[in-house]
């Protein structure tokens, strides 16, 4: 099953490689990993999307907690949460009819952020699943480039993950 783990880690050189190294060394799956500093610059917030049985997810959580740089690990699946991912996609505007593209973009609430040199670049923020279906709606030969950030997640309501 797919799980989204949210981590608070020390914002130190090497923390990222300790965490990614743990996943490869122990043969855990990793679908995406995002990381950036928080409002407290000494802390980074990391979102990891992984898959595995309950037993494996338990091991992943425990092994992450064991790392000295990791302050907190929360499995967002254990609470209500929302996930978002940013997609930047560059398309070949010579191959797409404008009304056709406009309808897809507006259906998905995307934003055109660049329209020049026979290319059109769209920004879209949503769940990974929605981004997938947006890309599915486009013909393969329209696409020059796909850039995705990977998933960020946050718990809903009063639930706060803080040090």
């Amino acid at each position: 099953m797919r799980h989204i783990l949210s981590l608070l880690v020390e914002n130190e050189a090497g923390a990222l490689s300790r965490i990614s190294g743990l996943f490869s060394a122990r043969a855990f799956n990793i679908e995406s990993l995002t990381v950036a500093p928080t409002e407290d610059e000494s802390l980074s917030r990391m979102t990891i999307v992984t898959t595995g049985s309950d037993q494996i997810i338990e091991q992943i959580t425990k092994q992450l907690n064991k790392l000295v740089d990791v302050i907190k690990v929360i499995d967002l699946n254990e609470r209500n949460y929302i996930e978002r991912e940013l997609l930047l996609i560059k398309l070949d505007s010579t191959k797409i009819g404008t009304p056709q593209l406009e309808s897809i973009v507006s259906e998905f609430k995307g934003v055109v952020i660049d329209d020049s040199d026979n290319t059109i670049t769209i920004e879209l923020i949503n769940t990974g699943e929605v981004l997938d279906s947006f890309i599915d709606k486009l013909e393969k030969d329209w696409i020059f480039e796909v850039v995705r950030t990977g998933v960020s997640g946050i718990a809903l309501g009063a639930s706060v993950i803080k040090y």
């Binding site: 425990k62 092994q63 907690n65």
Partner: peptide, 11 residues
Amino acid sequence: VDPASIAKNVP
């Protein structure tokens, strides 16, 4: 003492 050792191989 290591939670990760518990239930790693055997429930």
